[in-house]
Simulated scan of single mutants.
Amino acid sequence: MKKKTKIIIGILIITVGVLLVYKFGEAFAPGSYPYAEVYKIDAPEENVIKAIKQFKTSHSEFVVPNVTPDGADMPTTDSAELHSVPTKRIKNTKLQR
């Protein structure tokens, strides 16, 4: 074979190898949501919660129903209470702006 042909075949093999490694690594991406989007909102938490509540009152199709995975009704509580983290755990956390 000519030297030029060997170089082209080598480049193709390397390219295919890199793509295969990339796709194989994608299959083992970390976490439940490896491609989750992160948004940073430049507003106080109270304003964001208030805006979400206003949005849900005007767009009822986005309100999550109060049911458990087995179909039973959940007790009605504020969703912030269900997902609240004890303040001791986040005491030394620094917020980024």
Rank of each mutant, 00 (worst) to 15 (best):
H59S: 06
S32W: 01
K53F: 00
I49W: 01
A51M: 06
N47W: 02
K56C: 07
I52Y: 10
K6M: 07
I13T: 15
Y33G: 01
F24S: 14
A36E: 10
K50Y: 07
E46D: 14
P44E: 15
D42F: 04
V67W: 01
A51R: 04
I9D: 03
G71F: 06
D78H: 11
V16G: 08
E45N: 09
V85S: 05
P86H: 11
G31Q: 08
L95T: 13
H83R: 10
F28Y: 14
K4I: 12
A43E: 13
T87A: 15
F28R: 06
A80K: 04
P65K: 15
N92P: 00
T77N: 10
K94V: 15
I8N: 07
P65G: 14
N92C: 00
K3T: 12
P44K: 12
E46L: 02
D42P: 00
E37V: 04
Q54S: 10
A29S: 15
G31W: 02
I9E: 07
D78A: 12
S60R: 09
T15C: 07
L82H: 04
I8P: 00
G71E: 06
A43R: 13
P65A: 15
N66F: 05
T57M: 09
T77I: 13
P75F: 03
I13Q: 01
T57R: 08
K50L: 08
K40A: 08
K3N: 09
L12T: 11
S32F: 03
Y22N: 14
G71K: 05
D70Q: 10
M1V: 04
E37K: 05
S60P: 08
P34S: 09
H83V: 12
E37G: 03
D70G: 06
K88E: 14
K2E: 12
V38L: 11
S32L: 06
V63Q: 12
S32E: 10
E81L: 12
I11C: 13
V18H: 03
F62E: 02
L12V: 14
M74I: 03
Q96W: 01
T93Q: 08
R89D: 14
K53G: 01
K56L: 13
K2G: 14
I41S: 06
K56Y: 02
R89Q: 12
Q54M: 06
R89N: 11
P86G: 15
K91R: 12
S32Q: 07
A29W: 04
P69R: 11
S32H: 03
F24M: 09
